[in-house]
Structure formats: structure tokens, C-alpha cells
Computed example of a mutant assay.
Amino acid sequence: MTCSTGPDHGRSTLTTPLRIVRDRDRLLRVLAIIDSDGWESPAGTALLEYVRTQLARPLAIDLGVRGAAASQAEATAWEAVWVAMTKPSLRSAGSPWGVLWQVARRAVLGEVVAAQLATNERRARTLAAAVRAGELSPPIALEVIMAEGYEPASGDFGPVGEVVWRELLASADRALVDVGWPADEAARIVDAVLCMPTTPESRCTIVGWRLLAVDLGVPPWQARRLALALRGTASAPGVLPRLVTDGESALCDERVRNALLATRDRSRTSTPDVSDAEPRRRAPCTAGLPVEISTDSGVAGACCPSPAPTCCHEDCASAPKCAEDRGSRLARLGVE
């Protein structure tokens, strides 16, 4: 290879075909010509062609990439090496060809990992690290599962599945009719709830109830309660998932019943009746204790007008504590 300087533009021109050799001095010499003439020069074309055919392509094949994925990996590695050759730091590297080889290898491996995990390279490397650490399970190709004798699930329920599905929908319709919904409207409600979006949203409890209100022509509060009662949430399944898991016995659950009744009566809550729950504890009596009374001149201390001399808890176990609290509060306020 010999080069000369053109008389018109001061550009170096090649007088013989350029042959790329994996040698540091030869590579730096070619890069110097490219810095002068540009990547569209014969030197730039020859170097880029050599990098693609003698560096990127063999690496992709050696790493087991085939077909369209091999072409994609080759192009990605070629681009990465090209960017690396434009950096000034390559000129001072002790082994520039080694640097380029590492760049190409990393690019090919990135394409391999991205193809395996079906995402971009950066996300794929994070997921691959989690798989190596045992935090995630590696993805399994469908071909491998089918080779072991498994078959994809059929979208056809079959005659038995159709009968079970019709019975489930009929049970949901009857549950709405039992709480006061007309039969035709109950069937329309169940169909509309089944068509609601299933994508979770962190900002709300359930998605799609506003559109459900428009489709059914009911008030928004009623549509939201219908969605919660029939579909439910991850922590509180509704009628439909409960019918799938528990059968008809799910309709006997008091919470399910209250949730369905709340879809007809706005004043009713979906929480179960708490009449049989533990009675609420009464607060300690403050009779005879000093209280703060707001006046025009500020806040003044006064005693509670109630004449009750004893605590209202004297018939329970908290009476001694009430008396003790009353005495300590009087002592802090200077009242005997």
C-alpha cells in the first residue's frame, strides 16, 4: 500500500488496493488516512468491509447465532465497532484490535440475550443477571415444550366446558335477580362486566367501571359496585371468580350477598353486618376533670359540669386505670 497527497485538496489518495492486516501500526496508519479522507474513502470502505466479514460475522457464527438473528447480530456488532473506531482513545490503546474484538463480542452477546428474553439489550442484561442469581426462571421456548410432549391449550372449551360456562353465567344472572335486578338487565350486566379491560392500574382499584356506566346506562356509583361485586379485585374476588373456584356455595357468603345488595341500594355498604362483632369500648369518663373552654380573651380552664364523681367504667377492668389517669391529670393541672 502506498499513498500520495492530491495536488488540489491536500487529500491522501491510494495508488494500490489497500490490504487490511491485524497489526497495530497498520490499523493506526489506516485510521490516520480515514481521519484525513473520511469514512467514504477507499481506506474507510476497505476497513469497514474487513471488520464486517472478518470480525463481526465469524463472532456471530462462533457464538451459535443462526438465520436472521445472525444477520442482526452481525449488523449490531459492525455498528458498535465502527463507533469504537471513531473514538480517539483507540489510537492510544496497546492492542486496538483486541479492543475492537471485545466491542464486537459484547454486541453479539447483547443481541443473543435480547433475543432470548424478547426485550432490548439493556433490559435483557438485567433480566439475565436475575436469572443467574436464581431470582427469575429462565424463559422456555415453545418448541422445547412441544418436543417434550406438551401441547398448547386449545381455545375451544369443548361440549363439557360450554355447559359449565353457561351454568356459571346463569348462576351470576340469578344472583343479580335475587337482589332486585330484572332478568334481562342482569344478563346484560354480566356480559358487560366480562368485556371489561383486565389490565391492572396502580392508581385505581378496578379499571373500566366508568365505561361500564356508559354501556349500561347506570349511575357511576352503581357501575363501580357492579364491577367490584361481579369481578372483584386481586385481594377480594367477586362473584364470577368465586363461582369458578367455590361453585354455588360462593353465593351463600355474607360478604358476597352484601356486595350484591349494595348494587341496588346506594346507602348500603358492601361490608358485612357487624352487629355480632365485639362491642365498642367506651371512652374513659372525663366527668369532673378540668377542660379547656375557648373565650373571647383566650383559653381558660374550667371543670366539666357533669357531677359524676366516679368513672363510668367502675364495673369493668379498666376502672382502676381510669381513676389513676384522672388523678395524674389533676395533679399536673394543680387541682386537688
Rank of each mutant, 00 (worst) to 15 (best):
60 A>E: 06
89 S>W: 04
141 A>L: 10
77 A>Q: 06
123 R>A: 15
149 G>Y: 07
124 A>C: 02
159 P>F: 00
84 A>D: 07
157 F>L: 15
135 E>C: 02
122 R>E: 15
163 V>E: 11
76 T>D: 14
114 A>F: 04
190 V>P: 01
121 E>M: 08
115 A>I: 06
117 L>Q: 04
103 V>W: 00
177 V>C: 10
163 V>L: 11
65 V>W: 02
102 Q>H: 08
178 D>K: 12
129 A>P: 00
62 D>C: 02
149 G>S: 07
89 S>D: 12
94 G>L: 12
148 E>H: 11
118 A>R: 13
86 T>M: 12
74 E>F: 01
190 V>Q: 00
126 T>E: 15
166 R>Y: 03
140 I>A: 10
74 E>D: 12
110 G>R: 04
100 L>F: 01
129 A>G: 09
92 S>K: 08
77 A>C: 06
104 A>K: 02
178 D>N: 13
60 A>C: 04
140 I>T: 14
76 T>E: 14
143 E>G: 15
159 P>C: 03
95 S>M: 07
92 S>A: 11
113 V>F: 04
177 V>E: 14
183 A>H: 09
186 A>V: 04
100 L>T: 02
73 A>Y: 05
121 E>Y: 01
130 A>Y: 08
78 W>L: 07
132 R>A: 14
149 G>K: 05
132 R>Q: 14
98 G>E: 05
162 E>K: 09
70 A>D: 05
190 V>R: 09
154 S>H: 02
148 E>L: 14
53 T>Q: 10
188 R>W: 01
148 E>W: 10
82 W>R: 13
139 P>L: 10
148 E>V: 02
151 E>F: 08
86 T>C: 13
